[in-house]
Design a protein around this nucleic acid. Structure first.
Lengths: 110, 110
DNA sequence: TTTTTATATCGTAATTTTACGATTAATATT
DNA sequence: AATATTAATCGTAAAATTACGATATAAAAA
């Protein structure tokens, strides 16, 4: 066990969960907030910003890149990361399909 | 290791991550969608709806209840679950603080 | 060309997550 | 009272996640 039974769910449900998972760690939230605050490519100092070891940050950056929320391009010896704005919007739309379900329902609870 | 270093991050970052984590599994997305689609309390048939074993569903329901997204009250031998609308709104607001950061930033990337 | 700098990858430990069979608990039904 | 029904909890296995030291890689600087 320990394996999510992906085949039991719709493609959409799996994608929503995958996006939520990318946001499901405070370090990744901190990284994204930092990238937004800088509002341009960040070369280098992400590791100094967040209080975690360099390999750990590298791992989190990789996850964010895998789901497409950030992009990074090599700039000499360092790598510049920034928000992937197009994909960010796609992610927001994907999440809002479930986040906004409450607007279509009445609070008819016991 | 394997422990998230909560103390390295702000309360807000930890809360956002915690909310995202609740949505980070397709079974929980499926449960929430189902509860919204019924638009009232659901007694019983959640297990039949989702293709997972009863203890597994019970576990996912517990997680959703712990973060406050759903509430359940006992109705005879079964338990009725429904969306906790107030907390759902709080969760949305919490998530939007980071989801909507893109509206305040210009795409000034390399 | 050697050294420095910046980042990725490898290996691995600790922990958490996912899943489910077996059992328990609590209420309804007979 | 005995039985059936429904959901929670226990125990546990497999896998995924988080974290980081050590090492590799690749480009810049000396």
């Amino acid at each position: 066990m320990g394996v999510t039974k992906t085949e039991k769910f719709t493609e959409h449900q799996n994608q929503v969960a995958r996006m939520a998972k990318a946001l499901a760690h405070p370090a990744r939230i901190a990284i994204l907030e930092y990238l937004f605050s800088i509002d341009s490519c960040v070369c280098g100092d992400i590791v100094n910003e967040i209080g975690l070891a360099q390999p750990t940050i590298s791992q989190h950056l990789k996850e964010l890149k895998t789901v497409g929320l950030i992009k990074g391009n090599v700039e000499g010896t360092s790598v510049c990361y920034c928000i992937h704005h197009d994909n960010w919007l796609l992610m927001k739309n994907m999440l809002s399909t479930i986040l906004d379900l409450d607007t279509k329902s009445i609070d008819s609870c016991c």
